[in-house]
Nucleic acid binder design. Structure first.
Lengths: 382, 382
DNA sequence: TCGCCTTGCTGAAACGTTGTAGCAACTTCT
DNA sequence: AGAAGTTGCTACAACGTTTCAGCAAGGCGA
């Protein structure tokens, strides 16, 4: 194969690919691949056009498999494109089509607390998998400072760097998110947003998960005095999990006593909550924390007091993002299918970008009860 | 403030901002912000130009603070831009400037194994923090299938969707990575790449970390019969940690016996390696695993055999990405500053994109020994 | 009064892509 | 043989941005 940069700097003759119609340059040939990859200022349609002796539109149409382009020409173009290592310029394409090939994943509440959470990673895995399938890129967008007028992640959409966004863990009343929804930007929310009935969202059945785990404690292990450590109650997830806990107790055939301590989903708050509970409620038989991190905090507090888990007191968490598997004893928990959540959200977003509005707007994925040691030896398994 | 879409669909009169030169439309006015944000097909320079009665070039130069534009004009333009909620179109800008405002973070070895690792999240936090500071977006790029000619992450660079890339956890001989390096693309590698002396890379002093932890076992705890569970030995990190382990023993004043088992950084392989070690080496006093996950696997194996940690046998890991804090006992380990690593990598990448080649090309960040319970009660603390 | 500098802006071009209108050549039908 | 249709391509425009050359108007010294 031959490729020689001409005097115009851009034209490349590629004889082995083109049907040989006279070597216009006649220079010494070098490897085409090397020439292509070492060239700064990438290979464009114009380069291919020069090689196969076509117009740029012809090349574009050939690559797009337009019916009005002859098969022989298409073959030549494809061969030349492959040879030169042509990759379409995303800016040119985005500018022309008015649509970028990227989607954004947005984490409004910046900082370690949310961003560094394993939940987010699983989400990311699901989203990128789905995006890869659609040949789309994924951008990460956070908000460095709250003060600025337009949030950084809104800019990503407005600048059309991304054609749509998946918003993870937005607070219910984020004004930026509301504005994006109001502007009918292609946005998929992760979580349940009862106050945004028209927003497209994906969530899990939090309440059902909490019901399942609470029932397990009551029915399988015969526990009757149960405390719940909830997350912040302006957080829909925390509300739903707490609601499930109460519903399960209310629906139970057994008379149960319960109490509530509020945490903030952090391990420290879980430990503090457990301290309160153990100080105030006598004979607590079980603690159900609204996530695994708080459950781990509670575990530390119990251990500090010499309480054995599960012999003296049972413990359960929620999420199953890794923490619950590592502790001793392993935590009984509810598995939130974060990867599926991400996958589904991306799928919906692509629909939305394509113009179809999913019905119903809120998708609910099932959760799964994961029984480990912390809730006590299973009566039927011993 | 008033803003009324004219019959031409794009022109917006903005009286409060412009010097009032006759209301050309005279329609009922609505809130400008609402009008701007509800408009589909975003606000462009042309819209601002129409409002302030300027050419698009004038507006562009005003926003860029060009010295040849009058201050009064600049003020008007800025006011109008703010009022309309102007956000520059990234495609237009990228196309014109030949440079995108994004960087990519690349994870060549696809899949859960690497991608879902907490290490990656910390890296991501650091990278995004630095990118935000430079007003750049971050793209995530993986490789869905190995088979295709051009790797997905190479496409990201070639398509100029990102102006540079940070490559995390590349295998030493990834041909795609080599090609990107050879093509002089702006790429920063994370890790140590002795065979790529010209590549810009950031790593931690793995050997020093392994030396520190091994010395701690030998000198502080008086352990003499020590096994190492390494990672795969075609992995530079695994090599360096193993080298540090051996160097520490060789440099020690005490005669120590050691053995090696090779894992693949997974918990299962750590458990299997511990099984081999415990079966073959008599009176093992300590196991140093090359990462925390393998250490956790080893812990499970010891527990299964009724061995107490650290009373019967000491244990140490490497990484400190969360696992080591959660186990019982907590793992003595070496903290890898992943977030700093990401931050530094992004910083170097921006230099590289700007055209300056950092010297020296390889940056080494320090690691920190984290002593927890798994290596035994500290002689001086009891 | 003329040349020259400064100020403040405009027009045009370019980046790479895609789509549409149109043109030339050939085929087919009447 | 001429009309009509088909095939295969080209020219041009447009997306939004930035930059450069240049132009008009005014100030200023000679």
């Amino acid at each position: 194969m031959t490729a020689t940069p001409s005097e115009e700097g851009k034209v490349v003759a590629l004889d082995s690919v083109v049907s040989r119609q006279g070597d216009r340059s006649g220079r010494l040939s070098t490897g085409a691949t090397a020439a292509a990859s070492s060239r700064r200022g990438n290979v464009t349609l114009k380069d291919i056009a020069a090689v196969v002796g076509l117009s740029t539109s012809g090349v574009s149409m050939a690559l797009a498999d337009h019916p009005r382009i002859g098969q022989a020409t298409k073959d030549k173009v494809h061969a030349a494109a492959a040879e030169l290592g042509y990759v379409p310029n995303s800016a040119g394409r985005a500018l022309r089509s008015g649509r970028s090939a990227s989607i954004a994943i947005v984490v409004p509440n910046t900082g370690q607390h949310v961003f560094g959470h394993p939940y987010f990673m699983h989400l990311l895995v699901g989203i990128t998998a789905q995006a890869n399938a659609s040949d789309a890129a994924v951008m990460i967008s956070t908000n460095p400072d709250e003060t600025h007028g337009v949030a950084a992640y809104e800019k990503v959409l407005r600048s059309q760097a991304a054609s749509g966004a998946i918003i993870a863990s937005a607070s219910i009343n984020d004004p930026n998110v509301n504005r994006m929804l109001a502007a009918a930007m292609p946005v998929v929310l992760i979580g349940r947003f009862p106050h945004q009935p028209n927003a497209v969202s994906v969530g899990v059945d939090e309440t059902a998960g909490a019901v399942a785990i609470t029932r397990h404690l009551v029915d399988e292990h015969g526990l009757r005095r149960i405390a719940h450590i909830s997350g912040p109650l302006d957080h829909q997830t925390a509300i739903d999990r707490y609601a499930g806990f109460r519903r399960a107790l209310a629906d139970s055939d057994h008379a149960c006593t319960h109490t509530l301590a509020v945490g903030d989903f952090s391990e420290e708050s879980g430990q503090a909550a457990a301290r309160d509970i153990l100080d105030s409620m006598s004979d607590v038989q079980a603690i159900f924390a609204a996530n695994d991190e708080m459950a781990h905090g509670a575990l530390l507090e119990m251990r500090a007091r010499g309480l054995r888990v599960p012999e003296d007191i049972a413990l359960a968490g929620y999420d199953d993002f890794g923490v619950s598997r590592l502790t001793t004893p392993g935590l009984t928990t509810v598995r939130v299918p974060a990867e599926s959540l991400g996958r589904k959200a991306a799928e919906l977003l692509f629909d939305l970008v394509a113009g179809t509005i999913p019905q119903p707007t809120h998708t609910v994925l099932p959760v799964e009860l994961v029984v480990r040691e912390s809730c006590g030896a299973h009566p039927f398994s011993e």
